[in-house]
Amino acid sequence: MIPLAYGTYGLRDLSPWDAIDAIAAAGYDGVELTLAEGYRNAAPRLSSDESSKIRERLDATGVDLVGVLAKLHVLGAEGALATAARDDLLEIIGSGLSLSPRNPLIVTFTMGGRSAEWPAGRAELADALGALGATAASEGVLLAVEAHVGGLIDRPERVHWLIDQVGLESVRINFDISHFTLPGLQYDTNELIEELAPLAVHAHVKDSVPTAAGFQFVLPGDGLFDYPQYFAGMMAAGWNRPVTVEVSAMVFGQPDYEPVRAIESSYRALSRARSIAQQNFISKNGATR
Rank of each mutant, 00 (worst) to 15 (best):
S271D: 07
V166D: 00
A262C: 08
W17L: 03
S266L: 12
P119Q: 07
S115G: 13
I282G: 09
E139S: 11
A203D: 12
G133V: 03
E258C: 12
I263H: 06
G133Q: 05
A262G: 02
E246I: 10
F215A: 05
L143F: 01
S208G: 07
T8A: 14
L132H: 04
K206S: 05
E91L: 14
L143A: 01
A197N: 04
S170A: 11
Y230I: 04
L162V: 11
D222W: 09
G79Y: 12
V31G: 03
Y6R: 04
A232P: 05
T181E: 12
R261W: 07
Q165D: 04
W17M: 06
F175H: 10
D49L: 15
A269N: 08
D176Q: 04
D59A: 15
A123H: 10
I282C: 09
Y6A: 07
N103E: 15
F281L: 11
F175V: 04
G121E: 05
S98A: 15
F175Q: 03
A203K: 00
L89C: 03
A126P: 13
A123S: 12
A77E: 13
S178L: 05
A80R: 14
P183W: 01
E56I: 04
G10N: 01
P228C: 03
I163F: 03
A200N: 06
F217W: 10
A197H: 08
N280L: 08
L142C: 06
D127L: 03
F180Q: 08
G151V: 03
Q279C: 12
F180M: 14
V245P: 00
